[in-house]
Design a protein around this nucleic acid. Structure first.
Lengths: 202, 202
DNA sequence: GTCTATATAGTGATAGAC
DNA sequence: GTCTATCACTATATAGAC
């Protein structure tokens, strides 16, 4: 691995653990084993370095919900598969939802910066459009109750994100072991799927 | 208002807006209109000042769910009233859920510090115990489906908190006005109540 | 490409005058 | 109680040697 890749990898790890403000370029360099000046040689500013990490993770976060369905699954099975795919992505990047929320809330510039990427991206628009069509069909068929697609997606996001935001808090607050933390996450994943599917009942 | 109170008030405002790490004592002093040394004269350290703000807000956050019920309300009406009370508290302190999450996730010491307050506080234990009894009774009566009380509370927390975390992101991402942001919050509050009540159906 | 050295600016905190 | 002045520290970023 080149030094540049090492810096990017270490930066990703540290930004996820501690956020933008509390991670210094000195610390990144120290963990890579090189000099602090080198971090700036490759990425010029800390902001640049962060945005590279951030946008890559944003892409991952959004595309995770687009899990393709198997041939003969019904609507609820497909839905469950997608909700789980989204949760699994976060399980593999535990602090990711937190980092995204954190930086988007504290920094208005970053909100505006990803607007172009998310809102005006035709691929993402298309993903939404397809899902919206699906939802409306099932409502028309009477399989699920009347609900707005965006509202349902926000419900999924709320419940899924909160699993991983609350897990470290839950663990320390109730003096749990790492194994119990894992059990908490698994359990919440099940509860969230059940809650979401049940909330769609007519 | 005394200078000390002014400092506390301004600190509350700035910590809520920008978090602990990105608020400096210099900035607090500047906004109060006094010298930076004075902030340290009253509170000695920035950490002290923050913890005073933080614990006061934590208390507010927890007790908000304990809205007392009117005499002749049924279970679902009481539940709705509590969920709304909790949401309204956050509406009056828009960045509060975010601040709490932020500081609890990034700072293990703070997690442990509030453990004593939350987990071992007999009043809070009692609130939980009463609600748990209520839930179990309604399950026994067949009014709602089988669900763990803690799981339900986590669902409430997830959905309610996310309304206010997502509102500023939603507003900038989709170029919304302040009035539209307000409409978003009102709408989501309704959706969340409906989703939660519907998810309890047997 | 990697290093040392340094410019520049900001931080939290304290000492001491008034 | 409020101020000025200052210390010690850390940060980002850059210049220049090799």
């Amino acid at each position: 691995m080149t030094t540049e890749e090492q810096i990017l990898q270490t930066a990703t790890k540290l930004f996820l653990e501690k956020g933008f403000a509390m991670t210094s370029t000195t610390e990144i360099a120290k963990e890579v084993g090189c000099n602090q000046a080198l971090v700036h040689y490759y990425f010029r500013t800390k902001e640049n370095l962060f945005m590279q990490v951030f946008m890559q993770k944003i892409r991952l976060f959004i595309t995770a919900f687009t899990e393709k369905s198997a041939a003969n699954e019904d609507f609820f099975e497909r839905l469950e598969r997608r909700i789980c795919a989204h949760a699994n992505m976060m399980e593999q990047n535990p602090n990711l939802p937190f980092l995204i929320m954190n930086e988007l809330i504290l920094n208005k510039e970053r909100r505006c910066m990803i607007r172009d990427y998310i809102v005006e991206n035709p691929m993402i628009r298309n993903i939404y459009y397809e899902f919206d069509k699906e939802i409306k069909e099932e409502i028309a068929k009477g399989v699920i109750r009347q609900i707005d697609t965006l509202d349902f997606l926000l419900n999924v996001l709320s419940l899924n994100v909160f699993i991983f935001v609350s897990a470290p808090i839950y663990t320390d607050l109730l003096d749990r072991t790492d194994k119990e933390k894992q059990a908490y996450i698994s359990h919440r994943k099940e509860v969230v799927v059940k809650t979401l599917l049940n909330s769609l009942k007519p």
